[in-house]
C-alpha cells in the first residue's frame, strides 16, 4: 500500500520540488518563482472569483457537452441503424469532423452574437461529430449473432434500443464522449478568449494582456486541474458504465 502510494506520488512530487527550487531565485519576468505563483493562486482564485468566472465557464461546458452528447448519440443511432442513411451521411460527417472546431467560433459569432448561447453552440457544434461518428461505428459493429438473437426472441422497438443497440455501441460511444470532453474544454476556453466578459478563458487572457504573470500561471494551473478532474470523473463513470466490457476483455485475455 505504502509502496503503491510512493510510486504514484514520487515523480509528481519530485517535479514539483524541482520547479520550486529551480525557480526560487528566478529573475525572469515570464517564469516567476513557483512560490510567487502559489501565493498568487491563493489570492486570485477566491470564492467570489470562482463564482464570477469559473462557474459560468462550467455551466457553458456542461450545457454544451450534454447537448452534444444527446444529439450525437441520438443521431448516431439513427444513422448507424440504417445502411442507406449511413452511406449517404458518412462523407458529410467526415467533412464536418475534419473541420478544426475552433474555426466555428467566428462563424457562430456571426449569428449568435457573443453571449452564452454562442459559447454553448460552439461547444455543441464542435463536440457533436466525434460522438456522432463513434456512435455510428458502434451501432454498425453490434454483434450480428446478438442482433439475430434479439430478433429471434422478439426484442424489438424500444427494447432493442435499450438492451441491444445502446449497450452494444457503448464502448465506442464512450470513446467518442471522451474525445468530445477534451474538445469541449478547448472550445469553452477559446470561445471565452475570443469574445466574452467573464469565464476562465477570458480571465487568463486578461492576466496575460495586463502582464500579471504569476496570476496568469495560476490560471493555467486552474485549467490544468479542471482538465485533470474532469478526466478522472469521466474515468470513474466509464468504469461504472462499461464494467462488463472491461471484465470480458480481462476474461478473454486470461484464456
Amino acid at each position: 500500500m505504502i509502496r503503491r502510494f510512493l510510486t504514484v506520488l514520487a515523480l509528481p512530487v519530485t517535479l514539483f520540488l524541482f520547479w520550486y527550487v529551480a525557480s526560487r531565485t528566478s529573475e525572469s519576468f515570464y517564469a516567476p518563482p513557483l512560490r510567487t505563483i502559489l501565493v498568487a493562486f491563493g489570492d486570485t482564485w477566491t470564492w467570489p472569483r470562482l463564482r464570477a468566472d469559473v462557474l459560468p465557464s462550467l455551466g457553458r461546458l456542461a450545457a454544451g457537452y450534454l447537448l452534444a452528447a444527446l444529439l450525437g448519440v441520438g443521431l448516431g443511432i439513427a444513422v448507424g441503424a440504417s445502411r442507406r442513411l449511413r452511406a449517404a451521411a458518412e462523407p458529410v460527417l467526415e467533412f464536418f469532423r475534419a473541420v478544426p472546431p475552433p474555426v466555428l467560433v467566428p462563424v457562430i459569432m456571426v449569428f449568435a452574437g457573443i453571449g452564452n448561447a454562442m459559447k454553448v453552440i460552439v461547444i455543441v457544434s464542435g463536440c457533436v461529430w466525434p460522438i456522432l461518428l463513434n456512435t455510428v461505428e458502434g451501432v454498425r459493429a453490434v454483434d450480428a449473432a446478438l442482433s439475430d438473437t434479439s430478433r429471434a426472441y422478439g426484442i424489438t422497438g424500444f427494447a432493442r434500443l435499450r438492451y441491444l443497440l445502446l449497450p452494444g455501441a457503448a464502448p465506442q460511444i464512450i470513446t467518442g464522449l471522451r474525445q468530445a470532453l477534451s474538445l469541449a474544454i478547448i472550445l469553452m476556453v477559446i470561445s471565452e478568449m475570443v469574445a466574452a466578459s467573464n469565464g476562465l478563458g477570458f480571465t487568463i487572457v486578461q492576466f496575460q494582456r495586463s502582464f500579471a504573470i504569476p496570476q496568469m500561471w495560476s490560471g493555467i494551473i486552474v485549467l490544468g486541474l479542471l482538465g485533470f478532474v474532469l478526466s478522472e470523473l469521466f474515468r470513474l463513470g466509464e468504469r461504472f458504465a462499461l464494467g462488463w466490457y472491461h471484465g470480458r476483455r480481462e476474461a478473454q485475455r486470461r484464456s
Partner: peptide
C-alpha cells in the same frame, strides 16, 4: 504513470497565454 495521467488532460489551449 501518474504524472502522465495528470499532464495529459491539461488542455493545450491553456498554454496560449504562455
Amino acid at each position: 504513470a501518474s504524472t502522465i495521467e495528470f499532464l495529459r488532460p491539461i488542455p493545450s489551449v491553456a498554454l496560449i497565454p504562455l
